[in-house]
Design a protein around this nucleic acid. Structure first.
Lengths: 211, 211
DNA sequence: GCAATATTATGAACATCGTTCAATATATAA
DNA sequence: TTATATATTGAACGATGTTCATAATATTGC
């Protein structure tokens, strides 16, 4: 039995989240069990339930960490792209798309878990989770800000549409068994979609201001 | 014990697939267990394993049925749209998008299962499954045929890109807890994406033939 | 028609899962 | 030092997917 107060509750939570992430990446989702995580942090399975409501909640914390990592990566990519002398909206958004594709490829197990969370439909998602998703998506909105400054509703909808497009393309890339698509094609698909959507959004904006 | 040859193997398979579909839709994915399906068809759990390799395979058959239903619905929608006197590519593709959104909304549990199949990464997906996915996606390619007749590779890539876009939008609609998007907005997002992608594809075609 | 054989369905049994909770060990307070 | 409070445990529970010796039934050979 681990000595009481060897670690605080917060420390145990932290260790468990880290351990779960490592198990997920190193041994795959099918080995991500309560007993396996408990063993990895040197505690009994029951201890996890003193610190998390259940395993689903723990996995949601794993996700929220991954989302934050992704958000930071997106923010950096956006900054870099915006600092270019010939910065364009398309270029900045494409930098985000590439960052997301890169994340998906570097950490496939985490990415899978991120969008395949098992969460009971009748159980409301915690606010801290919903917020993190919003924050991550907000990076895309920020990338659109320079060009689509006036209409916030329009910008938000464009961001959501692009986000859906990214997500779909990432999923197509992940399911490459089903439709063999070379990585370069994935990149081109993203480029096409970004240019198409932003191009049309630009027209729509002009048309609106023209009438 | 059910009398031997009360049903042929094929009949038992059929019954099991139907029962699994019903359980999934009526009682949710968390009740979709081997014992529950066996009970529903009046056989013992072990019988399922005489007829399917395992539960994952049975679920794949459930999916392939759903995919075929979707394919038929898409084919019909495409035909109807193409028969209009003022038929356009955008109009036809939008008919497909609406069909898919409708399918997702009418049968949420099936839709979920369709894109969240648990299948071991090291186990190759059966050919009959990959084929059905291709057939379903081919409906989108067919909708593009009238306008993009010449370049097959281009058409195929456009179809895949649009498919990814649809898929992402459907997923956004399904995760409406995370980003509250009214159904009308979903429809508009699809419309925007279709118009944007096909518009740009038209430009690209012209530009290519112009040089 | 009957015995011998082949096939099919069974359901108890196994390992494992998430989860609970009385029991135990340790820290804190009196 | 004793009494109380808290943290940790791990056996136990009810599930799960899956297996396989056993039993029930059909088919075959005579």
């Amino acid at each position: 039995m681990a000595r009481r107060k060897d670690h605080t509750r917060a420390e145990i939570r932290e260790m468990a989240i880290q351990a779960a992430t490592n198990v997920l990446e190193d041994e795959g989702g099918e080995n991500l069990t309560a007993r396996r995580i408990a063993k990895a942090i040197g505690y009994a399975p029951g201890t996890l339930y003193n610190v998390f409501a259940d395993l689903d909640e723990l996995l949601l914390y794993v996700n929220v960490r991954a989302l934050e990592e992704l958000r930071v990566a997106l923010a950096e990519a956006r900054q870099r792209a915006a600092d270019e002398t010939d910065a364009t909206t398309v270029g900045t958004v494409m930098a985000l798309a590439r960052t997301q594709l890169d994340f998906m490829r570097r950490r496939p197990a985490i990415w899978w878990q991120l969008f395949h969370v098992r969460w009971p439909t009748d159980r409301p998602l915690p606010n801290w989770y919903i917020s993190k998703v919003s924050e991550t998506m907000a990076e895309l909105e920020n990338a659109l800000l320079p060009q689509f400054r006036v209409d916030k509703v329009f910008r938000r909808r464009l961001a959501r549409t692009l986000w859906a497009g990214f997500f779909g393309i990432c999923e197509v890339a992940a399911l490459r068994e089903l439709m063999i698509v070379p990585p370069d094609d994935i990149e081109d698909m993203a480029q096409f979609m970004v240019e198409a959507c932003i191009g049309r959004a630009t027209q729509a904006k002009f048309r609106k201001s023209g009438t």
